[in-house]
Design a protein around this nucleic acid. Sequence first.
DNA 1: AACTTAAGTTCCATTTTTTGGAACTTTTTT
DNA 2: AAAAAAGTTCCAAAAAATGGAACTTAAGTT
Lengths: 261, 261
Amino acid sequence: MSILTAAADVLRCFSSTRHDVTVTDLVTLLGMPKSNASRLLRAMRDEGLLETVGDSKRYRPALLLAQVGQLYRFAASLIDRADAVVGRVSDQIGHTGYISVRRGTEIIGVTAHPGRHALRVVTSIGDRIPAFASSTGRALLARLSDAEVRALYPEGFIAPSETAPRDMDELLARLAETRRNGFAESHDEAVRGVRAISVGLGDPTTGDEVALCISFPAATVAPGERLSIIRSLAEGAAEIAALTQDKRFFPLNLSPSETAP
Amino acid sequence: MSILTAAADVLRCFSSTRHDVTVTDLVTLLGMPKSNASRLLRAMRDEGLLETVGDSKRYRPALLLAQVGQLYRFAASLIDRADAVVGRVSDQIGHTGYISVRRGTEIIGVTAHPGRHALRVVTSIGDRIPAFASSTGRALLARLSDAEVRALYPEGFIAPSETAPRDMDELLARLAETRRNGFAESHDEAVRGVRAISVGLGDPTTGDEVALCISFPAATVAPGERLSIIRSLAEGAAEIAALTQDKRFFPLNLSPSETAP
DNA sequence: AACTTAAGTTCCATTTTTTGGAACTTTTTT
DNA sequence: AAAAAAGTTCCAAAAAATGGAACTTAAGTT
């Protein structure tokens, strides 16, 4: 086993609740001999991967890792990362996934992952749909303030379907719900019989914002499956949001009635 | 030579202008045999330190490094607190703020808050600048004794601009001034037309030291505004210094000529 | 489509590093 | 001051890394 494995294991020991490690921490966490732990930590410090806290025996990640880690954000654009998450969820559950961006009051599909079920939702990328009348749109509009949303629709709008919001008040109520829940949902809006779950996400340093969406025929998805889609999507989005330090991200918050059996 | 050295060298290859590397990049940059470069990159990817870009032969830092690097900020909670102060001041006055640390004779940006003025100073984090020829650098060097500063530059240095200190005596004079005033200032040093105000700060329990800096185009900032930047920065820094019980902190001490109308 | 060049991977014996137990030193606690 | 805990150093056996060359794959060029 290469020492690289051990070094990577050490890095994996760090977490939001463990900002530094000691020789004994490694012995406990990784089950390695003390001698190895001692030498490994020193070697990693000598190479600039870790640094000692003051002159104590505690080791923490060093500046080099902060610098290289920072690059990850730029190396992989927000769209790439969001797409990776949607692709994974789509593969896993077999329903269509895509990511979209908002341009004004319209939503534009950017990437798509077709599902593999016989009855599947087909979306073509590049299509424009109204933001207020789609889950992706509302997931993104929810990131704006109510005032900003109002400003976006000075003339109001006309609901294209029964289940879409009919006026501004209804839209703002749906957006408030989206913020509370951490996800947006649509049913029979753009296409009859189709449900969609969307989560919005942004990168404050670049200003990019995207929506992750999974779309499926309402008839073929059991309540439990729907919950699992919501969870997968929200979890993946939350990871990216943590990375970009997206302060406007709304974490998943399932209401009691949702989680009841 | 341990493979850790090689791995750390690979990480050091990444920069704001090089987001990914290939086998040949390593051969060129580090002068290692192709075979080693090939195996090393694959090993680092297998360990989760790097990831391949799409299915190409390009490697970039992986999520693990982003996560661990992120912790650096919190591990060194001084950075976090200092960053909060700089962020607040930057938001308030609209000019670029950042915090930096010193590594030997170099200053490295750690976090940045871009200003919102049309003419703004852009700093990219991770970049290295010489300590003696920047306000951040002198804010940090001022925390050392004159003897320690001399020891840091056994060969002296060469001034990169007209307004930078030209020799050790001039540097020590500027450091004495910094200690007296409680802040360091630069003008036209790294970039023509740019002024920067910096305050140094430390945490004796961890040994960490950081500089808080606000940087702005000299032409757009009136004397009164400059004073208010100095006051905000010094005040925020003093608060943290009190918290960490930093005994080497130099409190603000505006000379009579500064405060005169 | 065949050729040429460049880039990347695999092979192998040799050299170097890593390993883990035990003895030893330092630090902390009682 | 003694005891316990934490960390470091030593050693020979075991494992991994090295670098040159042969090989495979990918990318241009005629």
